[in-house]
Design a protein around this nucleic acid. Sequence first.
DNA 1: CATGAATGAGAATTCATTCAT
DNA 2: GATGAATGAATTCTCATTCAT
Lengths: 214, 214, 214, 214
Amino acid sequence: MPKRIDREAKRVEIGRAAMQVFRDKGFYRTKMADIAQAAGIGKGTVYEYFRDKAHILRVEFDRYFDAFRLGAMETLGRAEAPGAKLVALVDFALSHVEEWRAHCSVYMDYFSVARTDTKEETFTLEEIYSDMRDLLTGLIREGQACGDVHPEFDSESTADLLLSMYDGVVMRDIFVGHLGGTSRMREEAMKLIRNGMIAAGRRTDETGAREGGP
Amino acid sequence: MPKRIDREAKRVEIGRAAMQVFRDKGFYRTKMADIAQAAGIGKGTVYEYFRDKAHILRVEFDRYFDAFRLGAMETLGRAEAPGAKLVALVDFALSHVEEWRAHCSVYMDYFSVARTDTKEETFTLEEIYSDMRDLLTGLIREGQACGDVHPEFDSESTADLLLSMYDGVVMRDIFVGHLGGTSRMREEAMKLIRNGMIAAGRRTDETGAREGGP
Amino acid sequence: MPKRIDREAKRVEIGRAAMQVFRDKGFYRTKMADIAQAAGIGKGTVYEYFRDKAHILRVEFDRYFDAFRLGAMETLGRAEAPGAKLVALVDFALSHVEEWRAHCSVYMDYFSVARTDTKEETFTLEEIYSDMRDLLTGLIREGQACGDVHPEFDSESTADLLLSMYDGVVMRDIFVGHLGGTSRMREEAMKLIRNGMIAAGRRTDETGAREGGP
Amino acid sequence: MPKRIDREAKRVEIGRAAMQVFRDKGFYRTKMADIAQAAGIGKGTVYEYFRDKAHILRVEFDRYFDAFRLGAMETLGRAEAPGAKLVALVDFALSHVEEWRAHCSVYMDYFSVARTDTKEETFTLEEIYSDMRDLLTGLIREGQACGDVHPEFDSESTADLLLSMYDGVVMRDIFVGHLGGTSRMREEAMKLIRNGMIAAGRRTDETGAREGGP
DNA sequence: CATGAATGAGAATTCATTCAT
DNA sequence: GATGAATGAATTCTCATTCAT
């Protein structure tokens, strides 16, 4: 039992070290030796914990996506109306980016590896995008049904757009790189969505009232 | 009397073939031999036209960014008011994605290579982002000054957000992959921005009136 | 608990094998694969011990020159008079050629590589030539001052000439190739130098008296 | 007929240009393109005049050795006694180095190529060395027979030694590189040989009397 | 378990040589 | 003849992965 825990702790430690290196040099330019060195262990030892280089990425992003899923569910549970849920979800997603900055910097590489991997390993990517897309589409439809969301928006395309915004913010972080940028972008995004999509008079959510009635 | 060849045309041709392969297999998994084969030429010939693999990417994306810059300038020239310019610019940017789909699919790899390149080659990336950011920031400020744009938006962060949306849409294309998605996302994005950022009563531009109101 | 290996011993072993191949095929025609095969190891393993092909040469000739330097110093320590030192030094140098035949055969390639190397690695060549030239020049001058050496010789040019003789003997070995040639050339060289440079009556040294006479 | 001459002139011109580049970069690092550029012609044109890269070397050194042979014969023709012939020959050989400096710098590469060439082309090298060795051996023997040359020298080994001196002086030039060095080395070499090998009282030759005696 | 020495498949790149114009 | 575009054989070098200790 303690063994288990030690092993798992070490795996996490190696994963963290690897992500750090991926972030600095990019996945493809990172050598297993770099990872081993960063983790302070021998080259062969990495293979005791991960099948191969791509596996590290996979495991790390499984953690990332699991946290995302969990947070998203919690967020949805806390809000009542569809419009509020929608806004809260977007807000959560962008805040998630801030919390997982280390992973975001490597996101593109994960994308690239997931997309071009030849072994047919399962990468969570397509699945979670599909899930989130369905979720958003449903929320928009419900929101429109109850008058929270402007009816002029096409639910599917708008869901795609929101996902794209999320992706874009993730990428942005890689470039601009200075802390705080994401947080402020998130605020603007929230304004944009509230103003642009949510019907006036419904723009209140638990994140904080933005517009108050008459 | 030697063989006369339009080197520039051939270069473009090889570049096109390379982009095709990059799109299919990803930049890092693409071998120079693949490119040569796709272009129907010998392996060594590729090196007659490009210094190395990354150079192909660089040249192709220079073309991409040049076209972007040109189109953006033209777009700005056609609109009058800052708000209209802003909307038109976003509209153009998203339409550019549609036109240059082949490049967008490889965008992430360009990102990755540009970011991690060890030789100190010049990649246009940072420069154009910086330029566009300044441009957008300026437009938002002007728009706010003349009442076109809601004053609650922070110009810099909002510029970043719009750039992120652009990046996100570019990426999206890689995943969803089916044509038309981008076009419909663009429409939703325009609605969102008009509704959310542009003051009511100013939401008309040459792209088409959306809300008139007396 | 990992595999323990005497890295230095293995390095020497690979170096030896490489020199053998260089000798047979010449440096430029030798492939890393040849060296690996000759050393009975894998291609990649060579790179664990040497940066590249030229590095092998460098390391091997560092050993050669170190031995030369050491031997030269010892030789000088054993002789008393300048003339005797001079003669003993030339004698040692030529005997060194015999001992290091394997290296001499590759000497020209070392020359060539050292001279044209593009990376700015340090090759010992210029340094040791410069050192030896100074040493010889000094000895000749001292010898002339004390009457051991004929005064008509210009010390610097004669030092150059003696170095050239050394180089020539090194090269010769490559061509003639049969053992023993060098040894006999050395004898003739000693006669020539004793007769030609050393004043009669001083032609005795510890290497063996040649002319005594009252 | 004029065609012939033009062709030959151009061939010489290309050869000269090639030697210049070989001298600067070394034979192996020189590309055919470098040679073409240095000669101011197209890459393919070089092949109109030379079979391949090694062929340029071969042709150029044929010219070098032809000149050597011719000069040696003339030199021998001018001297009378064996001792004088010997001295004159060595003197000529070293002066030849001075005259053909451009070739000497490339001598080692010629050596190397000649030694390791896989196609079984004829390189003059072994032949001329063998010829010169025989010639020198003969002269020494004759000189000893008539009392010109000290009897203690072994004719063959001494011939080898003299050849080695020649080789060494050729090499030296590559390193030291400053003009004049060779000329002064030659003077010292002549002193050494006259004093060391030639019997007193016979040390006069057409190059100039050195020792008269009372 | 941990390790790092060994490996060889694989990719980039070079460049002598050919040959259509 | 002259040329330089095209080529692919040849070589270097890298690095993920294995495995004996």
